Amino acid sequence: MAEKEVIKSLEELLTGSHAHISFEDAVKDVPEKIRGVVPDNMPYSIWQLVEHIRIAQWDILEFSRHPGHQSPPWPEGYWPKDPAPKDDNAWKESIAQIKKDCAEFIKLLKRPDADLYAPFTHGDGQHLFREALLIADHTSYHTGEIVAVRRMLGAWK
């Protein structure tokens, strides 16, 4: 019973917004004209933050389910060079992929044979519970940055 509660809590952490705004709400209705703007004294645009979230989450998902997965080189493989998406479709695809990969990770947690705390056969001690927390923590951190950039650009309520 306790394991099901842990999985439920992890799913809520990955998809919800208890202590802060959700990723989905942070990127909702971002005007196309500001997606690629890098504000003064900030290193990234909203697009770069969204893509970074997508790439990092994908990497964690693939690492968690495929022992032979090769992560991109750090840091250049995790950050897009272009500050703006090539078009509105690229923006929508990135956000959809983040949602899809999160759902795929939750499926890993819910597999009948899943052991949340068993170290993977690869890596250096990582396990599903740790990787779920890593995705949630990383996404939350950068979601806050998205909101801050939106505020700087006058596109936040």
Rank of each mutant, 00 (worst) to 15 (best):
N41W: 03
H122Y: 11
E5P: 07
L109N: 06
K4H: 14
P83N: 13
I34F: 00
A148Q: 08
A26E: 02
T143Q: 07
R35N: 05
P67V: 07
H20P: 01
L108G: 15
S71Q: 15
A132M: 01
E145P: 00
E51P: 00
V149Q: 11
I21Q: 03
R54P: 12
H18D: 06
I34A: 01
D29Y: 00
Q126M: 10
H138N: 05
T15V: 09
S71C: 14
E5I: 09
K33G: 00
D87A: 04
A26N: 04
K4Q: 15
S94F: 04
G68Q: 14
M1Y: 10
W47P: 02
A90F: 04
D59T: 14
I55H: 07
I7F: 07
G68S: 14
Q70L: 08
R150G: 09
E12N: 15
V37N: 03
S45D: 09
P112K: 12
I53S: 06
W79K: 08
P72S: 12
E104H: 08
G36M: 08
S140N: 12
Q97H: 09
V37H: 05
K157G: 06
L10Y: 10
A84W: 12
R151G: 08
I55F: 05
E93R: 15
L109M: 11
D115C: 02
A56D: 06
A114M: 04
Y141R: 14
V6S: 06
R111Q: 15
I7H: 11
P112V: 03
L49K: 01
E93C: 11
W58H: 10
H138M: 01
L109G: 09
P112M: 01
V37G: 02
H142S: 08
V6K: 09
P119S: 15
W79I: 13
A84T: 09
V27K: 00
A2N: 13
P31S: 08
G125Y: 13
A132W: 07
P85S: 04
G154P: 03
S71R: 15
Q57V: 06
R35M: 14
D137P: 00
R111D: 14
P80G: 02
I146P: 13
V6A: 13
L128M: 06
L109P: 07
Y44H: 15
I53P: 02
L134C: 09
V27I: 04
H20W: 08
M1Q: 11
A132V: 07
Q70M: 08
P43S: 14
D59H: 02
G77W: 13
F105M: 04
P31M: 08
P72G: 12
A155Y: 12
R111P: 02
K92F: 06
E76F: 11
G123V: 12
G125M: 10
W79E: 05
W91D: 07
I146F: 11
E51G: 02
A84V: 05
D115I: 01
G125N: 11
M42R: 12
L14C: 10
I46A: 06
A118I: 01
L109F: 10
S17V: 00
F105V: 06
P72F: 13
A19I: 00
I53G: 02
T143C: 06
P39Y: 00
Q97W: 01
F120K: 10
I95C: 15
L10I: 10
R130Q: 08
E145I: 00
K28E: 10
D124F: 14
T143R: 12
